[in-house]
Design a protein around this nucleic acid. Sequence first.
DNA 1: TAAATATAGTTGACTTATCAACCATATTGG
DNA 2: CCAATATGGTTGATAAGTCAACTATATTTA
Lengths: 150, 150
Amino acid sequence: MKEEYRKLSKYTGGIYRCTQAYMSDILKPYGLSSASCPYLLALYHEDGVNQNQLSKELSVDKAMSARELKKLMDQGYVKKEVDKKDIRAYKLYLTEEGKSLVPDIRKEMINWNRTITRGLDEEEKDELMRMLDVVLIKAKQIRNLKKDEE
Amino acid sequence: MKEEYRKLSKYTGGIYRCTQAYMSDILKPYGLSSASCPYLLALYHEDGVNQNQLSKELSVDKAMSARELKKLMDQGYVKKEVDKKDIRAYKLYLTEEGKSLVPDIRKEMINWNRTITRGLDEEEKDELMRMLDVVLIKAKQIRNLKKDEE
DNA sequence: TAAATATAGTTGACTTATCAACCATATTGG
DNA sequence: CCAATATGGTTGATAAGTCAACTATATTTA
């Protein structure tokens, strides 16, 4: 990786921040923020998970999830159910209203991703995703390892 | 990109956040934050730039740069000089103290990047960086375009 | 050259995100 | 079984980052 000592985080951070800025504009008319969007998209595909699982899936702190999910519940897009097998935990679901929002948001997200990856062919995009997946898994592993040391 | 509609920002965001968390621990003994680190590394390579140029290079808002650079100046790691050709602007430099910090930080950053990219061979890493570069350039373009519309 | 516009930097209000401490319940191992 | 430990969720404090409004100087153009 030669001189690329700082670039990985420059790239990931930069792309992420541009994405947030863009989506934040797109989501404003829906009364949604760029931070709440990942929750809607994730719950659309995986019902009934709890906040910790969701936080890990999205690589964010569970405190963040607690607050964002509270907003989404207040807006009526997400509902919680106590998990009968573990009364500390909630099972999370989209409401009908929440579900109806997702297709549009998803389209916008696809559109943005397609736009910023013009310049790569389909095969390269697949490669990029595969490699980012490898890197993210590793990065999360180390982060969790560090937490266990404490 | 099939079903990958949300994943690019999941990956970039996730990798970025893990990196921040890791570097934040590493930098604590130096009295530095993960947010100030990019400035030290960037200035080590490119002296005499101004805050706007630096902000663009790092894909952050200039307000962020103003505040982080102020901290670094208070700590004695960065100094400003009024640009004689444009008295609105400052030219930014690392102090000797600032310069002496960089090699260690850089080593840590390289080490982290090497660790999270284990699983990719050298050729793949180069490919990854090249593709992320293409994507970031595009993402920044659109972001700037949007600003001009306003 | 004067007016219009653009650019550099700062600040206040706000969003996004983390960490640490905490409560309550679950799980594990003596 | 029960003590120790782990896990799910919440909250307060704080860091990271954006946006919009502003001041001051530069640049463009009519």
